[in-house]
Amino acid sequence: MADKNQYRYLTKTGLKSLINGLMKDRVVYGAVKKDGFPAFGRITRFEDLELSQTPTHLSAKEFFFPQRECLLKFDIPTGAHEPVVASQGQAVIGLHPCDIHALNLMDKVFAHGTSDANYLTRRADTVIIGAECFPDEYCFCSSVETMNANAGFDIFLHEIKSGFLTHTGTDAGRHLLGKLTKTVKASASRIKELDRLKKKKEGAFKTRLNAPAKDLPGIYAQSSDSPVWGKIGAICYGCGSCNNVCPTCCCFDVKDEVGANLKDGLRVRVWDGCTLEDFAKVAGGHNFRKTRAERLRHRFNRKFRYLTDKFNALFCVGCGRCSRACLVKINIAQVTNELIAESTITKNR
């Protein structure tokens, strides 16, 4: 949580100056409405911005890890390969705390060992402006310790009746606030209003996990043979929507696209998903995760155990996007609660 003294008050007009200022030398993306639903999109006028209380359908990962991106250009006759690390000065406005946590997790994946220049360069060229949210029936960030973000953003906005309370996460954020707009020290009454809103948010979760976050990797470790996997595997379509909408799903495929002249082309990476049938298939036809049950078990374990073992953090940020998107209503929180109910870890408590 930010130090109370750090909060600065920003009016709605003040936010407009900030966004307009950012638009002068950056491409700005932010929360907008598409077909009536909250989403991220390009913002060319301040009025386009519609900060949403509930999560966007798709996460903001596409601005750092696009669905399709060129890794290199090649020329077939000469064999020349030219790397492409495309990045632009950009800003993304309206990321919720869970989205910011998700970005911090993606940072770990793309920075460990060999650095992924494409992702990391984009990340460094992006101003992040976070915004407070309010849970819908799918959100469960309060159960996975991602309800508040302390780092990973430049500026954070808490909407109150008369405008916003802001706090900053980086020197760059402080610099931008100072340069592009005007803020004043937050008054005690406004900070009280914020406290009230936070309490209201904390009490508003309809979905909660029935075990403390630190127990989840252990609970998943006991669940390999649970009947739950067969049950959800039997109804899953293997459509990969859950992978697409998830802010921490960042697996990809790499393929070559040859131009119409058959001379040059691009090596591109595109999003891939572990729930898709071919994801773990090798030559000769052997599939290391043949059934949908095995593939869902892999995806859920990746969020709560496998990557936790590797990076020491839960990789589910509780945004509920996968549950919201699933056509057959497989709900990651409900599934996890079923595993919790089966686990001896919770029974021994």
Binding site: D107, F110, A111, S115, L120, D125, T126, V127, T170, A172
Partner: peptide, 8 residues
């Protein structure tokens, strides 16, 4: 900006 993000 680079201060908060991983080194590039």
């Amino acid at each position: 900006l680079n201060q908060q993000s991983p080194k590039t």
